[in-house]
């Protein structure tokens, strides 16, 4: 398995001196869904922002497709697709126009872009609203548009931060199917969540972060065996309360 993402000894101290990420290391390979798990405030979003070069970090090293993310920031950004927790859209634009704008910024040719938009519209079931102004979208529609936007350039590394929060079961299913689909097509998918049900269903391996520190890093199966718990939620509770394996 080829390593697509490598995070080594990542430390992030915010300006106010708060250490949000404290010595976290992990690797994610092609064709897997990797769970970035942790309770609220664990540091998941901070890690994702550091990986995607939009947030500086205090210490450590990050490589995407073998490229250092500090030295090759632009190249790294064009190889990863990040779904942020903020799923806003340009409201005076239609969904399609939103996607076109981002596609252009990612450097897609207009024919490639048209094809990609069609493909994503089908995959994420957006046909009913893609030509409507984004101001009129429901949460689920916005979420699907945000997902389409984040992968408009068909990146090798896909990072989804809480992609199913606030979604009903149907929409959640669409998102989960999308991640499975990405895994099948050889992408590296990082799935950040605190919903253990989704994580257990999808993830091959996980890292559990608590208060900025790594408390577990293994396959879901191994973690269950090691802790003797029946499902990932119990594993998670046990580890977070006990803070470590």
């Amino acid at each position: 398995m080829e390593t697509f993402l490598k995070v080594q000894n990542l430390v992030k101290e915010y300006k106010n001196g708060f250490r949000a990420v404290d010595d976290v290391s992990f690797e994610v390979g092609a064709g897997e869904i990797f769970g970035l798990l942790g309770p609220n405030g664990a540091g998941k979003t901070t890690i994702i922002r550091a990986i995607s070069t939009i947030l500086s970090f205090t210490n450590g090293k990050i490589e995407v497709l073998g490229k250092d993310n500090l030295r090759y920031a632009e190249e790294v950004r064009s190889n990863i697709g990040v779904l942020t927790t903020d799923i806003g859209a340009y409201e005076r634009f239609t969904g399609k126009e939103n996607l076109q704008y981002f596609g252009e910024l990612y450097g897609l040719s207009s024919s490639d872009l048209d094809k990609r938009i069609k493909e994503l519209t089908e995959l994420l079931d957006m046909g009913g609203f893609i030509d409507k102004k984004a101001a009129k979208y429901s949460t689920g529609m916005k979420q699907r548009l945000a997902i389409a936007r984040s992968v408009i350039h068909d990146p090798k590394v896909i990072i989804f931060d809480e992609p199913t929060s606030g979604l009903d079961v149907l929409s959640s299913q669409t998102v989960r199917d999308f991640m499975s689909h990405a895994r099948e097509s050889g992408r590296a998918v990082i799935f950040s969540t605190h919903q253990m049900y989704d994580a257990e269903k999808l993830c091959d391996r996980v890292i559990i972060i608590h208060k900025g520190k790594e408390i577990a890093y293994d396959s879901v199966e191994n973690l269950k065996t090691q802790t003797g718990e029946r499902d990932l939620e119990d594993v998670f509770l046990k580890l977070v309360k006990g803070e470590g394996v």
Binding site: E74, R77, G88, L105
Partner: peptide, 14 residues
Amino acid sequence: ERKTLEALLLTPVK
């Protein structure tokens, strides 16, 4: 306010 800034900064645009 519309929460689109981060997505814009995530593009390879400098």
